[in-house]
Write a protein that binds this DNA or RNA. Structure first.
Lengths: 230, 230
DNA sequence: ATTATCTATAGATCTATAGATAATGC
DNA sequence: ATTATCTATAGATCTATAGATAATGC
């Protein structure tokens, strides 16, 4: 049952089932569902094609398994990212966004993969939305009270926390979504990591300034209108 | 040569070649290259499958033609969006971003389509990057001088215009990229258009605040550190 | 006796083309 | 004489399974 590991594409102590899963995740993330061939997965895993069907029956089932694993890990990472306790609101927020970004830096194909999945399979989306809803609820609950306290003090502007997180996730995810176009266009020669880390700092600046209280209104200049009021 | 238009899927005065192009664009945008079958395009266009190959020879060539048309229209739209003249910098910027967003509202599949194209076909990406580079250069040139004048007056913060446009495009595009997940999660029941228009206002607020000058430094609070300096 | 793995192949798509026929322009 | 359109089918993938053989656990 335990293989002798003569297969060079497998890690130490990894069995063929795990090798197929790893290869499938790589292929699906890189090429999407339709672009991935089960023959290519089998080849990448160093096993025969039939074995893939022996373990996972169909391409669809293998895909669902891979997808579920990916979402589970993302959930864990996101909830942990915002779990720091006892620190001031801005510190926790920035630290959470930094961790969220670094997670994406380790999984740069993830945003595109999730977006394509939700678009291409709306029939499966309902169950997944529920999972993301629960995850978002946890993050919101963990930050909401602190945010309101700060707003009451007047040290940050009053705004909807969901909108703020949406802004932050948009900026973070887009750095990876746009890299194949924008990375080489805006910073040719720079390596990917340095490029992304520069974007992270800009993203954090945007979020910080989004929360900056409006300046006191001394004159009629437009920047004095409290645009966050109804 | 001119058809009698007995085909119900074709518009008045539209020939079969155009009908194939329209159907191909719809299919490719919705399902991507791999997910689209030439048989499905032919069926959607109301012609036999062989006719598609008669006009465009291969799926690949048809795809390139569709892609090129899409990019050309986007270029025109973007350059026009920022071409308003004689108005103050902030007005031109906001108006340009508003038009950019409304264009996406008419073409909600476009961001995902472009991202997938650049990721899946890096070999073709070079030529396209050049086109996007020219387009970006035009928009930058048209705004740069005005922005510097405003910054010199002190009415806006000093920052890199490219970063600012990147932030804005990220926020605008992500509204459409994330809609299948976030739309139904955050605003169930709301219709898509209202949802997106609400995001547009938040996006403009983010950009406005990004440009808000830092408050004068009266005390040692963290919001007083001029984080836009080296 | 069960689990893991392979070879070989059936069956389903999907792209592309060959070759016939109809419509149009000179 | 050229352009547009159709029917029919070849050829290439790709998914999935059948059925044989080897390895493992009782």
């Amino acid at each position: 049952m335990f293989n002798k590991n003569v297969n060079p594409t497998m890690k130490e102590n990894e069995n063929r089932e795990q090798a197929i899963l790893r290869a499938a995740e790589r292929e699906f993330l890189a090429r999407g569902y339709d672009g991935t061939k089960t023959t290519a997965i089998a080849e990448a895993a160093g096993v025969t094609h039939a074995l893939l069907h022996y373990y996972f029956r169909t391409k669809e089932k293998l895909y669902e398994r891979v997808f579920d694993d990916i979402v589970s890990r993302l959930e864990t990472s996101l909830v942990e990212a915002f779990s720091a306790n006892g620190l001031p609101f801005m510190t926790r927020l920035e630290e959470g966004l930094r961790r969220h970004f670094l997670y994406l830096l380790d999984h740069p194909d993830l945003p595109r993969f999730l977006i394509n999945e939700f678009t291409a399979h709306p029939e499966r989306a309902a169950a997944l939305r529920l999972r993301f809803g629960v995850m978002l609820g946890r993050v919101l609950a963990s930050l909401q009270a602190d945010m309101e306290a700060q707003a009451a003090e007047g040290t940050i502007a009053r705004m909807n926390l969901t909108d703020l997180l949406y802004d932050a996730v948009a900026l973070n995810a887009f750095s990876f979504l746009s890299y194949p176009l924008a990375g080489m266009l805006l910073a040719p020669g720079t390596d990917a990591r340095a490029y992304h880390l520069a974007r992270l700092e800009e993203n954090l600046t945007v979020i910080r300034k989004r929360l900056q209280p409006d300046p006191p209104c001394e004159n009629a200049s437009s920047s004095c209108s409290p645009d966050w009021l109804p």
